[in-house]
Simulated assay, not measured.
Amino acid sequence: MRIRPLSVEGAFEVTPVQHGDARGTFLEWYRFDALAAAVGHPLDLAQANLSVSARGAVRGIHFADVPPGQAKYVTCVSGAVLDVVVDLRLGSPTFGTWDSVRLDDTDRRAVYLAEGLGHGFCALTEGAVVTYLCSSTYRPGHEHGIDPLDPELGIAWPTDTPLLSTKDEQAPSLARARETGLLPDHAACSAYAAASRRM
């Protein structure tokens, strides 16, 4: 398993080693110890999600209040998506920047993103199946979104006609979220991560 940091601080790309023979393929798609060594603390697993998306569907950009936030470990088990991580942490050296990784059922990569980072993806194939391991459970009122089509973010979604949920269509711009105090604070996210390392 190879784990490398992305350009957004706190996000990592995970590439598993695949073993194949006449029967098919086997791989370790998640390793507690390998991820903890790369990230600096373990990923506490509290919830697992699965989504199935039509081609061209864009989900995100979603994030949660910190603390506790919601770290995620995301992979695409069928089809392909362009997975996007956005730094929404005020005061972060990479604030407002994004990075992306193609997740598919060929290379079987995964993405880890720390608490306070925004997450979204665009389905590149019909019926793309994405799984998420999450560090905390869904908390109504503490989960938020940023307009995935916000020109300030300038995310290069690989579709001319993105399919969005009503919630994502109505999500505020990055500037509006900043003005209204919706965004997480980098120092608070760093302190939360440091506390996790001591546990």
Results as ranks from 00 to 15, higher is better:
G154M: 13
D104Y: 13
T97F: 03
A38D: 07
V84C: 09
V66N: 05
R102L: 07
D147T: 07
R23C: 10
G118Q: 04
H119M: 02
T159A: 13
R2S: 14
S136Q: 14
L133N: 04
F12L: 13
R89Y: 03
P148E: 02
L103M: 10
G91Y: 09
H41D: 06
Y30A: 10
D105E: 15
G24V: 01
L90I: 10
A11Q: 04
E28N: 11
K72E: 04
E126C: 08
Y112A: 08
T166D: 15
L117I: 00
D99R: 02
V17L: 11
V111M: 01
G154D: 09
T125D: 10
P158D: 08
G91T: 05
P148F: 14
D99W: 07
V66T: 09
T166L: 11
D160T: 11
D107S: 07
L88R: 02
P42S: 09
C134G: 05
G91I: 09
C122D: 01
R89N: 08
P184V: 04
L182M: 15
A193L: 13
L27I: 00
R89S: 10
A64F: 00
E169D: 12
T166A: 15
R31P: 00
P68E: 03
G24I: 01
L182G: 02
T180D: 15
K72H: 01
V17C: 03
G116R: 00
V66E: 00
T166F: 12
L82H: 05
V101T: 09
A187W: 08
H142R: 15
G120M: 11
E28S: 02
L88A: 08
A187E: 12
R59S: 10
G145N: 11
D87A: 13
V86G: 03
D44S: 12
S53I: 00
V81E: 12
S173T: 15
T125Y: 07
A110F: 04
D105Q: 14
T125F: 06
P68W: 01
V77R: 04
V66W: 01
G60M: 11
V81W: 02
